[in-house]
Design a protein around this nucleic acid. Structure first.
Lengths: 232, 232
DNA sequence: GAGTGGTCTAGACCACGCA
DNA sequence: GCGTGGTCTAGACCACTCG
């Protein structure tokens, strides 16, 4: 039994509410026996769940299941894209622009050569067919050699991971608030000067190479982000 | 050598730029020898640094030091309070309100009894003597038995941890944008209707008990949050 | 192929909570 | 005092990168 497998199993059971009555997971020895796993495996699996905020350990007491207020919120960790964040809702995109060009001034942010080829994608993202966010994104052609209108209208991240087989590593985000300009406001069905929640996202491959830079303007009445933080 | 000690040592060395030329840390065997530590210790220490985004591991290659854009940004993980986020700047607070009362309607958010005693604190937080944020916070008296104007004018978190000796565990945050009302805008030196970056923060002790709920309205031209996310 | 980090085993003892 | 999770040891083998 691999610890990532065990983590997935436990995560499903937690989400199904299996441990809700007890409020806590079985103890380490119990889990070891139930899954025929070593303590190494059990502890690593639980560490993954704790990182995600599904569970918290109390020394001498147990592994407690966490209640949290994340319904309808975007998790700010784990950029798995909007598509996977709203189960039961329709997430779609209206392509505004898709072009291939040289990085130019964007080479600073993308940490690449000025003449490196990039795809530039602008999309209006819709939640249940209502305007939700405007996304401006750049992808280095070196890593994402092909993008079509069809792909860009769907989940680009799913394409990158599943079809291109790239393994993503980590991401930096900057979050701030700004006023919308006229063009943005029109797209979102708001007025110029209204607030926008802005997220700049620099995404890296597991190799440490940056491959994607995005800036997203979220509808301030519809978008709320959720974050789980360790205070240790 | 404990792994938390080693992590601190390495963190200091990284911040001093010791590994900047190489771009990476010494290998695990090298660190084991340098610090007379076991592999368990070395790997746990590095895992802590990786969680904070200071370093990323590439299998078969090494542990690379990360460059990031966090200068002048508030780290959204690790609520160690504003005070520790702006070294070289003056962080102060102007107390607006400090009262003790029953939780009442706030008992839902605080997950406590309606008649539980709470301290309610409102502060205008200043960065270099300029208005930076408005903070509304509640502290359960059960865990924070005493708060004075003097304490509330300083770093409440430092007081809770160092003086009261409470061990904090984790926190949930909601992040969104809203329009400022007249009173808030006046305090921040902005206009009503201007954007605010709002953070709701529910903080828990290591025991899993919630002890603090806060809502902070940040000056949208001055506050930017930084987040590091693992995409695995 | 040599060297890197990742996974895993099979133990031991420690620190803390709770009754 | 017992049961919980936390730390630690001393190994082994696997998966991956890179020259």
């Amino acid at each position: 039994m691999k610890y990532r497998e065990l983590a997935k199993i436990l995560k499903v059971e937690i989400d199904k509410g299996k441990y809700r009555d007890a409020g806590k997971l079985p103890t380490e020895p119990e889990l070891m026996e139930q899954f025929g796993a070593t303590r190494y495996c059990v502890r690593n699996a639980i560490a993954l769940l704790a990182e995600l905020g599904d569970v918290y350990p109390v020394q001498g007491s147990g592994m407690f299941v966490r209640e949290n207020r994340r319904e309808g919120c975007l998790n700010i960790n784990g950029t798995r894209g909007m598509t996977s964040e709203f189960p039961g809702h329709s997430v779609s995109s209206k392509l505004i622009k898709l072009e291939q060009r040289e990085a130019g001034a964007d080479s600073v942010r993308l940490k690449c050569a000025a003449d490196a080829k990039v795809y530039s994608v602008s999309r209006l993202r819709l939640l249940d067919d209502e305007p939700f966010a405007i996304e401006y994104a750049l992808y280095l052609k070196e890593f994402v050699p092909y993008l079509s209108e069809e792909i860009a209208s769907g989940s680009i991240y799913a394409y990158i991971r599943e079809d291109l087989g790239l393994s993503t590593g980590f991401a930096d985000k900057l979050i701030y608030a700004r006023e919308l300009d006229h063009g943005q406001a029109d797209l979102l069905g708001l007025s110029a000067g209204d607030p926008a929640l802005v997220v700049e996202d620099d995404a890296y491959l597991a190799s440490g190479r940056m491959f994607n830079a995005g800036t997203v303007y979220y509808h301030y009445k519809k978008a709320t982000f959720f974050n789980f933080a360790d205070l240790k």
